[in-house]
């Protein structure tokens, strides 16, 4: 576990991978225009674990979708590794709130879904096996999604993202529909996975504890329109001790910051 701590040290002075510059997003609906995001900026280093927290409706999912290239911002730009994000790319893989597995594919086929060079059987097998191993589903490779529990299904979704070989993983409240103990286990697994693969991770959550357990840096957002309230470095050593005074203090601090009044 101390290696994870080293990891966080090591990454602190590294190059910038993702740069969000002055993003605004206006949705136009039948009822008029809604400003979802306003002049939002932050950055994320290579190998860094960043969380985005905020109350529901503050536009954190929209922000992640813009970084993923699934949604277009109204103004501003996202730079990934120095180049503008214009759409989905091979350098980013998304894990959605729901597992979104393909019901007609087995676990192993679902994981192999995004592999680029799908004709290269050896490569597909190598990447699939590696991902299955990382998410601990080797014994379930032949199972179909409907045979899996919620936690296992979300693991498959994470495996699918890993097999895509992205530089960054973008997770949109991936554990929010899981029960408390499954969530805690998956959080631990995600940290381990981050340690093993050294991927850059951006995770959206409304759960402050989750943000504190997982990330090195958390972007605290305020709602209506969504903007960055504060970028908070979490310099606590891994694994994070939830009962420690330092942890509690940070939690208290974020709670105050994230209040719905503005």
């Amino acid at each position: 576990m101390s290696t994870i701590a080293n990891n966080s040290q090591k990454n602190s002075n590294q190059e910038m991978l993702i740069q969000v510059n002055n993003i605004s997003k206006i949705f136009t609906s039948n009822w008029g225009k809604v400003q979802a995001l306003q002049n939002l900026s932050f950055s994320c280093n290579r190998g860094e674990f960043v969380t985005i927290v905020g109350p529901s409706g503050c536009g954190k999912t929209t922000l992640l979708r813009i970084i993923a290239g699934l949604e277009r911002q109204t103004t501003g730009e996202v730079l990934f590794n120095g180049s503008k994000v214009l759409g989905p790319g091979h350098d980013r893989a998304v894990v959605f709130q729901e597992p979104r597995l393909f019901p007609w594919l087995t676990v192993e086929q679902n994981i192999a879904f995004g592999i680029r060079d799908s004709r290269n059987k050896q490569k597909v097998k190598y990447l699939t096996d590696k991902s299955l191993d990382l998410v601990g589903l080797k014994d379930f490779r032949q199972a179909y999604p409907h045979e899996l529990s919620g936690g296992m299904a979300q693991r498959v979704a994470i495996g699918r993202a890993l097999a895509f070989e992205p530089a960054a993983l973008l997770l949109d409240e991936p554990f929010s529909s899981l029960d408390v103990s499954t969530r805690a286990r998956l959080q631990g697994e995600l940290l381990e996975l981050w340690h093993k693969t050294a991927k850059t991770i951006i995770l959206v959550t409304h759960n402050i504890t989750e943000a504190l357990v997982l990330s090195q840096k958390t972007i605290i957002m305020s709602p209506a329109p969504g903007s960055v309230k504060e970028v908070l470095a979490i310099d606590l050593p891994y694994p994070r001790e939830q009962n420690s005074p330092a942890f509690q203090e940070k939690k208290e601090y974020i709670h105050k910051n994230i209040s719905y009044k503005h």
């Binding site: 989905p88 790319g89 893989a93 998304v94 959605f96 979104r100 393909f102 879904f113 995004g114 895509f164």
Partner: peptide
């Protein structure tokens, strides 16, 4: 549409999208 979006996020070509989704 959520599965179609997965296809988009994982960079399927239009033809693969029809065939695989």
């Amino acid at each position: 549409p959520k599965l179609v979006e997965v296809g988009r996020a994982y960079m399927l070509s239009p033809l693969s999208m029809i065939r695989r989704v």
